[in-house]
Amino acid sequence: MNAESALAAALTAEYAAIWAYGPIGVRLAEAERKAAVEAEAAHRARRDALVVQLSTGGGTVPPDRPGYALPFPVTDRASALRLAVQVEERTAVFWRAVLPASAGAERDRALTALIDYAVRATRWRRSAGIAPLTVAFPGRPS
């Protein structure tokens, strides 16, 4: 995969992540809702940077969609936390895929994203009471 298609794929993952934090946020309260707001902001910041990067590089910017299918219904706090774990772990997969296709500052940014989302996934696992809190190879497709 070349850098542009890896980054375009990461952008589609960011769109979906931002969308998913809508139903997640409304099921959470207090500190967890604040963490959801912060996580969503991180995904929005990377989305915006990717849109700028891909469009100024003359590449194709994949469009956002009006909605995304959730892997399971989000009806309460527990399902919201489980979805948050999935969102972070799945988005991390796309940034990991950027690593071999990139170098220098671009690889640094991709690794920062991978680490950021892996750590957020661990925090969500803790909130959800999921053990273990970590996976051996964050971002590796299962």
Binding site: L114, A118, G139
Partner: peptide
């Protein structure tokens, strides 16, 4: 090697959190 090393860096960061 970049993807494996990225996963190792991320894993160690999550350990710090855990």
């Amino acid at each position: 090697r970049a993807a494996l090393l990225g996963s190792i860096a991320a894993a160690r960061a999550t350990h710090l959190e855990a």
